[in-house]
Simulated scan of single mutants.
Amino acid sequence: MVHIHVVGGGLAGLTAAITAAESGARTTLYEGHRSLGGRARTAEGPYRANEGPHALYRHGPHAAWLARRGLLGPLVPVPPRDGLRFRFHRAGALRRLPPPALLRLVRRAPHTAPVDDRFLDWAAGRVGAEGARAAAHFAATALFHHDPGALSARFVQERLHRLGSLPPEARYPVGGWGTLVERLAAHARGLGVAVETATRVDARTLGELARTGPVIVATSLAAARALLDDASLAWESGRTVLVDLAVRTRRGDAFVVSDLDAPGWLERFTAQDPGLAPAGEQLLQGQFPIGPDMRRAEGVARAEDLLDLGFPGWRERTTWRGGALAEGRTGAVDRPGTTWRDRPSVVRGDGIFLAGDQVAAPGLLSEVSFTSGLEAAMLAVKAAGQHSGSGAGSRRG
């Protein structure tokens, strides 16, 4: 039996390993950290924070794939009562309603937006410059990019349309994304996948693995570039300050504060899942994209300004605080004239396949990792069959 190797135990790697094992292939998954999950890990302890805001979108392929295997687990939607506490920062003040121009753009079908134009230019021609800027900044929650208006109009509109759908598409795994990773890992092991954690694969080891069967590299694009010594493995991503905060509960706190004056987002995740923080406390998470020349402190300052508006007295109420600067770890963005098809190909040659959130695969947020992992595994299984068949033919001859 030809062996399929999967390097990387995040969502892409777990999806690939499960798909390969379901085909009957002997499969081993290698993860450099002691725990699986990649950027889908959930922190241990009383504050169950993810690495940035996470949600599953019910119209996406990932949710359906998980549901068919009984892996979806309990999900919670945006609570109706807390949904009314959605606030928009516009012209320096918090408002209960978004500008009508933003709503008009949200309703437009993605295929009406051109691939070759900047989103800001295309949107301004339909709702005016002010509405276009607000829409670009609102879409930043799914882009993690400091200048969404400069990206491909089609790319941004696809995300804006799904983010603004009613009822909301977003669903949240109870207990954080770590619970979803646990179910995926248990299912993989149940299918016979050998899972090796705390095992780093270098170029030499990769070559040895490739001699026994196809290899799926399901790491970050930067890690894949170094591992495969392939300078072509590059694509633009965002640079984002991630903010984690626990505060004592206060009546009237916002559920979400969306910054329409600049890309920024704050969300109270305990509104839908109170178990993410101790009783009497609320877990807030946010993202504030910054430009390539900006310092992390500038993103933190923007976050604190938004906290002052949406969560009065948050400094005195804070019980825990964390955060990070995510550089190139938040998925691919497409410039005008490019689509997901132009990103690094899943097929790398010589039995090597690529998966991850910056690979040539469609989808919103984590759906790109899922879709590329699925495709890489199916191609690896096919390649393994061809390899096995040719070997058998040689023996018969």
Rank of each mutant, 00 (worst) to 15 (best):
E51G: 08
E51V: 14
G52E: 00
P53Q: 01
P53L: 06
H54C: 06
L56H: 02
R58P: 00
A63I: 15
A63E: 06
W65H: 04
W65T: 09
R68A: 15
G73L: 03
G73H: 10
P74A: 13
L75P: 01
V76C: 02
P77N: 12
P77R: 08
V78T: 03
V78R: 00
V78M: 00
V78D: 03
P79L: 06
R81Y: 03
G83T: 05
R85D: 07
R87D: 04
A91R: 15
A93F: 05
R95A: 11
R96Y: 01
R96T: 11
L97V: 11
P98G: 04
P99V: 05
P100E: 09
P100R: 13
A101P: 01
L103A: 07
L103C: 10
R104D: 10
L105H: 01
A109P: 05
P114K: 10
P114N: 13
V115Y: 02
D116Y: 05
D116F: 10
F119C: 10
F119N: 07
L120K: 04
D121E: 14
D121L: 11
G125N: 12
G125W: 04
R126Y: 02
R126T: 09
V127N: 02
G128L: 10
A129G: 04
E130C: 02
G131L: 08
A132Q: 11
A132W: 01
R133H: 07
R133W: 07
R133P: 00
A136K: 00
A136Y: 00
F138G: 03
F138K: 03
A140T: 11
L143R: 00
F144A: 15
F144L: 12
F144Y: 14
H145A: 09
H146C: 12
D147S: 15
A150M: 11
A150R: 15
L151Y: 10
S152C: 07
R154N: 11
F155D: 08
F155Y: 15
Q157F: 02
Q157C: 07
E158V: 03
E158H: 01
R159N: 03
R159I: 06
H161S: 12
R162S: 09
S165T: 15
P167N: 13
E169S: 12
E169G: 04
A170W: 01
